[in-house]
Design a protein around this nucleic acid. Sequence first.
DNA 1: ACATATTGTCATCGC
DNA 2: GAGCGATGACAATAT
Length: 774
Amino acid sequence: MLSLKKYLTEGLLQFTILLSLIGVRVDVDTYLTSQLPPLREIILGPSSAYTQTQFHNLRNTLDGYGIHPKSIDLDNYFTARRLLNQVRALDRFQVPTTEVNAWLVHRDPEGSVSGSQPSSGLALESSSGLQDVTGPDNGVRESETEQGFSEDLEDLGAVAPPVSGDLTKEDIDLIDILWRQDIDLGAGREIFDYSHRQKEQDVDKELRDGAEQEDTWPGEGAEALARNLLVDGETGESFPAQVPGGEDQTALSLEECLRLLEATCPFGENAEFPADISSITEAVPSESEPPGLQNNLLSPLLTGTESPFDLEQQWQDLMSIMEMQAMEVNTSTSEILYNAPPGDPLSTNYSLAPNTPINQNVSLHQASLGGCSQDFSLFSPEVESLPVASSSTLLPLVPSNSTSLNSTFGSTNLAGLFFPPQLNGTANDTASPELPDPLGGLLDEAMLDEISLMDLAIEEGFNPVQASQLEEEFDSDSGLSLDSSHSPSSLSSSEGSSSSSSSSSSSSSSSASSSASSSFSEEGAVGYSSDSETLDLEEAEGAVGYQPEYSKFCRMSYQDPSQLSCLPYLEHVGHNHTYNMAPSALDSADLPPPSTLKKGSKEKQADFLDKQMSRDEHRARAMKIPFTNDKIINLPVEEFNELLSKYQLSEAQLSLIRDIRRRGKNKMAAQNCRKRKLDTILNLERDVEDLQRDKARLLREKVEFLRSLRQMKQKVQSLYQEVFGRLRDENGRPYSPSQYALQYAGDGSVLLIPRTLADQQARRQERKPKDRRK
DNA sequence: ACATATTGTCATCGC
DNA sequence: GAGCGATGACAATAT
């Protein structure tokens, strides 16, 4: 039964991977959810395990790199953040190629990083391309899948807050209890995400069908399965499965293939990732991929020929199509464009040759600068003298398409479009003022910016090839949702726990906390949870300070809420205040009874407690201050004065008490201040990330626009040349392009006018938009 | 022993 | 003006 199940699981997985490699999208979830519940159980495991997984993920995000109040490890935490940033940066432009290697390290099951971070590795993978193959985690996070790449990453690293934000305090407490139980049982963090859940899953499984203990952990998805890791049901250890025969090698080789694919295409789409390989796509047409979608970029021009449409709608269509294209087309955008499958509208209708100037199989540099030069040549006078040569590589358009041109460019002087004044490399200024070309200004600017775009790209360390490959990660809606999830919405969630810290400081709240990061929220709990951690029982007995804002951190504290229970009197400072406790308690603590066997230990305890006391506490005890420092510090002024009035205190005592109060308050203020400072830094860091992401996305969109613009212009040019070339005078001879030009009228008619007249109109129209700008 | 990080304290400012 | 919080700067302490 064991081998059968394992074989089935691994076989399915390998088959799925294989199918994915050749471009067939396999929606595992569909099968799992709808048809084969047993299969789902086999592969995914009991659903309860998910819950457990998520519970532990709360505490073990990045496998312990998330900040836990019990183990504040900012170094690890920031290391995790750096790793996260690196992973995120993979879809940013400035990422060097070497960082992709770091990504691969994550994937390595034997690697130290992934070995210690099973959960993070998995989620990273699931967001990187195996999502459809790896069912389990996907199932849990299905709703988040559309949030995009970084959203998943977000959930990984600093994610505890958003999750915890949805949890009730009881949930947190439960998590704490589970956590401590795990710790008490000697369970290391590394087993929380894997073995621990494995054990639970095994238990569930035994209860259900008496299954064997050894099984791969379904929650880890394809990766774990591919690793052939087995988990000892008792120890929780995971070890490589000894798969008889060559299965293991097969799995490894498949995984190697995946890695290779990711290395070459590290920003692959989740499901469509394999389908992006055009050759594979050609060999095995993908069912899921909309046919010819990537080439629908030009469809507005084509579809427009059949039905009248408004320009705005057309533009929106273009935008949406480009977005879809950006999502669908990945690293091999150019390949797909030029190795388009048969039946593709672009290739069939336009016979766009691979040598077409609109060569997208180039780097951004080529796409930009080349595009510029191309545009210049496109509208340079040589074109008109070489109509045949140009049109040979261009598209034979049916004359009826001219209506779309009319709709697209309005009353455009086509001659002006293609034979503009030399000073202006673009032809959009020729749009008539009566019916302004909606594309005109935009395109014009876009074309002008194209040059600077390249500079910008270079500045950014923008790898053009990567950029062209990256266009989808954040593009369109996914990118937007990403961004929104990063700043505004994630804010709300993360702030749910974190704003407690920053809200106490009213000044920096709105702006600084407006994009509070989840890390931030964790941070908020750090300083004080550590303090509360050092609290001993004696502190909980009453020598606690009033710290209303800190009480909000109780939820993040691992301590038993029954002890601290977020009471207003909560000592946040890790000091021992027992010196001012009731004489009886004080005696028992500080004055160990002599002549006992435990004298030594008592003394040690007293010394320990003595060391725990702060200087002010020592001073207070020396001055025999009759109440606790906490009262001195945290009582409201009225009560404080009332308290002072109850005792006959010397001037020295009063002075000391006031100093204690001042210092105590200042200490808390300093802690708040430092925490705020840290929060601000983290927020700024996050803002920078968001802005960089936005910038990259806008840059990609711009590249897309320019690309489509060039294509449209090329089509217009080819149409013009097609029409012009077919015109014959009364003697049956073609018109000379140097003497005549076509002018597009607003009513859809095309006029053949002398070149001089066309030039005059072009100049006139060129002036008017400029006047309008002034 | 040294470097670095953390924490406590003081001075000062502004509310 | 007292009280208090915020914060820079420095020192003490911890790691």
